[in-house]
């Protein structure tokens, strides 16, 4: 059976094609002003890689902030539901799943079937999410991908406010004026984010296997800060930014199976 998951995120659209539990195609496109068009692009890319056409798909499930705009979706699933499903599929013992995307950070607690039982979302502010790193990189005049490696050179962190992107940025400017080193400021940014996210995770209770998903999981600086804050190892899959699409594709598979019966 072949199914697809489409994750229409705030920054990019990701598509996964799944055949009998194995990923056979991936596609990605920037959401831009037309997420529906981006979804078509990402779908085309994934189908080309899998050497398939749209007609081969038994079921398509959409997720992500713009899921309502998904073209040709048979069903939708919440981002939290998709995270839970993907997290347990990738790491069967995982019961706490964290997802840090561009605009939102979430933590989900789930059972052994990957059904979520509780979730928390960062409250109406992007300070715990990827957009925060971008804003801080701008303030430090470094590239986004340099932030992580830079922060790892720091011996200590300077304290900043991460309750708000705007206030966080003005704190960073203050630190720059105090001539604190860039690595220390970069680490402060990640520590502040990790602080917010770990308190979300603690509200759910920390289970031994914690999985980190979402685009920000690729940032070594953030991962180091989060591990320090949670004081446990964090499991990260090979393509963390595709986890939402994977979860949706898995849910598509179980829906297709159910309708076959």
């Amino acid at each position: 059976m072949i199914t697809a998951g489409v994750d229409l995120g705030t920054q990019s659209v990701k598509v996964i094609i799944l055949k009998d539990g194995a990923v056979i195609g991936r596609g990605k496109a920037f959401s831009g002003f037309d997420p529906a068009k981006a979804a078509e692009q990402a779908m085309d890319e994934a189908l080309t890689r899998a050497n398939l056409s749209l007609g081969d798909l038994s079921h398509v499930t959409a997720t992500g902030a713009s899921m309502a705009l998904a073209p040709k979706a048979d069903s939708t699933v919440s981002m939290m539901g998709a995270d839970a499903k993907a997290g347990v599929f990738l790491f069967p013992k995982a019961r706490t799943i964290i997802d840090v995307g561009a605009e939102e950070a979430r933590a989900v607690r789930c059972d052994d079937r990957g059904v979520m039982v509780e979730f928390v979302v960062n409250e109406r502010c992007a300070a715990g999410a990827g957009a925060f790193i971008e804003a801080m990189a701008r303030a430090l005049e470094v590239k986004l991908e340099e932030m992580g490696p830079l922060s790892l050179k720091a011996e200590r962190a300077s304290p900043i406010n991460a309750s708000c992107v705007i206030f966080g940025e003005s704190d960073v400017v203050t630190l720059i004026h105090r001539q604190e080193s860039k690595p220390e400021i970069a680490r402060a940014v990640f520590d502040a984010m990790a602080d917010r996210i770990s308190s979300m995770v603690h509200r759910l209770g920390v289970n031994p296997d914690v999985v980190l998903l979402g685009g920000v999981a690729k940032d070594a600086g953030f991962v180091a800060s989060l591990k320090r804050k949670l004081d446990i190892d964090v499991l990260i899959p090979e393509f963390p930014e595709f986890a939402g699409a994977l979860g949706a594709a898995l849910i598509a598979a179980s829906k297709a199976e159910r309708s076959q019966k």
């Binding site: 902030a65 059904v115 039982v117 979302v121 109406r124």
Partner: peptide, 22 residues
């Protein structure tokens, strides 16, 4: 904030539905 609330409320309802299904 209706959009953000919708994401949360629907995830919660989905979670309740999943619990009922099983």
């Amino acid at each position: 904030d209706v959009g953000q609330m919708k994401t949360r409320v629907e995830a919660f309802l989905e979670m309740l539905t999943a619990r009922i299904d099983i």
